[in-house]
């Protein structure tokens, strides 16, 4: 997976899951999501509570992308992270280079500085596991022929009422 799309192997996913689970525990945060720059959810850990991780990931990704445009207009090359304070929960979003976005949600009272320190460590660990081309990027899907036809048959069922 990279900024141009791509793929992740089962081994990479296991490593990332383990890193995220460790981050939730060590930093004392409630929820963490890893989202790709196109808004697709890659991985999640911790409690989801009221969060729909798919739409939440897409919203944060869009939000992060817009902050990059703001950075550009301010003459900054990029913003690596931003923090939003709520009444009960806070949000900390940090870039995993240009490969992904780490989204951390934590309760008020959690030390923000600690979250940032652990997030930085987590970003480095994840970044090392998101090397383009090493996640099974390949020409064509290894799912056998007729994949598109099978998927379209499912789509027909799903949209049958239209």
């Amino acid at each position: 997976m990279n900024k141009q799309g791509g793929s992740l192997s089962a081994e990479q996913m296991q490593t990332i899951e383990s890193v995220l689970a460790g981050y939730v525990k060590d930093a004392g945060i409630r929820t963490v999501l890893l989202v790709d720059p196109d808004g697709h959810l890659v991985c999640q850990s911790g409690a989801m509570d009221t969060i729909d991780p798919v739409s939440f990931g897409a919203l944060v990704s869009a939000n992060f992308a817009s902050t990059q445009q703001i950075a550009g207009q301010m003459g900054e090359k990029e913003f690596n992270a931003f923090y939003i304070q709520g009444k009960e929960k806070d949000l900390y979003v940090s870039a995993v280079e240009d490969k992904a976005i780490l989204v951390s949600i934590f309760a008020r009272g959690t030390t923000v500085g600690m979250v940032k320190i652990f997030a930085e460590k987590t970003v480095k660990e994840i970044s090392a596991n998101l090397v383009p081309g090493e996640g099974g990027d390949q020409k064509g899907l290894s799912v056998g022929g007729g994949f598109a036809d099978s998927a379209l048959a499912e789509l027909d069922k799903v949209l049958g009422g239209i």
Binding site: M1, S7, S9, M13, L41, V42, G136
Partner: peptide, 13 residues
């Protein structure tokens, strides 16, 4: 671009 997550056996477009 589409992502294929072989870990979760998931394709996102």
């Amino acid at each position: 671009m589409a992502t294929i997550n072989y870990g979760y056996r998931e394709i996102n477009c």
